[in-house]
Amino acid sequence: MKKTVFFGALTAAGLAAGMASAATLDDVKARGSLNCGVTTGLVGFAAPNAEGEWEGFDVGVCRAVAAAIFGDPTAVEFVPTTGQTRFTALASGEIDLLARNTTWTMSRDVDLKFEFVGVNYYDGQGFLVPKALGVTSATELDGATVCIQTGTTTELNLADYFRVNGITYEPVPIETNAEGQQQYLAGACDVYTTDASGLAATRATFENPNDHVLLPEIISKEPLGPLVRHGDNEWADIARWTLNALITAEELGVTSENIEELAATPGNNPEVNRLLGTEGELGAMLGLEADWAKNAIMAGGNYGELFEDNIGENTAIALARGLNAQWTDNGLIYSPPFR
């Protein structure tokens, strides 16, 4: 009974918090900066550099949203969150936007009352094995010892996959990615499994990365995207369409290099004109300036540029575009039209 009352009070307080901050955009404007939740450090996605400035693929999304609102990509307060604290931080209003490589699942969207505004990275669970093992497919892993993080969806995915394929494995439970790397290198397990992007980043840090291969099988769907609270659709729209603007910019060939030129005068492509605010009223519909998308794109470049700068093939992580290519290149990255 007491418990019920306590949780009732908690919910009421939470609802009150939700209602009072209904106009997130106004709060953010009054504060003068965007509070953006990121990881406490994940290679390529978000990490502070030697000067303490945050860099990474998820950070790029935060900066783009800040630039869309303020015209200034540095008007962001980065709030580091852990796997345990991220959802509460968002629900309680401590952060306005969570860009922390969070998988879009139904229960998070519906039950936790969040609004995923899109997908900025399509990930999936993969396998890393030493070349010396001579394995070319995950179906050959019968009886292998597998390093796996406990209490994550990867653990469940792995059990499902091996059961479906009628093969056995022996789990070696680990807590963190750092521990996983050490255990795998020390030979405590034959296989290391986690999200493919994480495996690529891990492999890149090995002394001899070429002695290890990623198996071709991807055994789960992990669409990672930024999310906001339920209940403020205008704010969700801003986050969603900022992400879409980055994606559309790549599709239309608008880059951080040619954007000044394209935005100076209306050109021949009406969608570029609408995107960059030289034509139409799209910015005003969001409650932002006409050049909101231009600022967002200039913050760190379009989607493709963000990808290449932070996690692309020329970086240490060297991820191929794969599923994250534009739909025109047989990928899944697709933005609704700017019209």
């Binding site: 406490t40 450090g41 290679v43 978000a46 502070p48 345990q84 050490q182 890149a204 090995f206 970086t315």
Partner: peptide
């Protein structure tokens, strides 16, 4: 406090490890 997202020395260590230059150092 590392578990609530503050950067104590251990948190800083993992943040350092999360940069491409120093990923893999323990």
């Amino acid at each position: 406090v590392v578990f609530i997202g503050l950067f104590d020395p251990l948190g800083i260590a993992s943040a350092i490890r999360a940069t491409t230059e120093w990923n893999g150092i323990y």
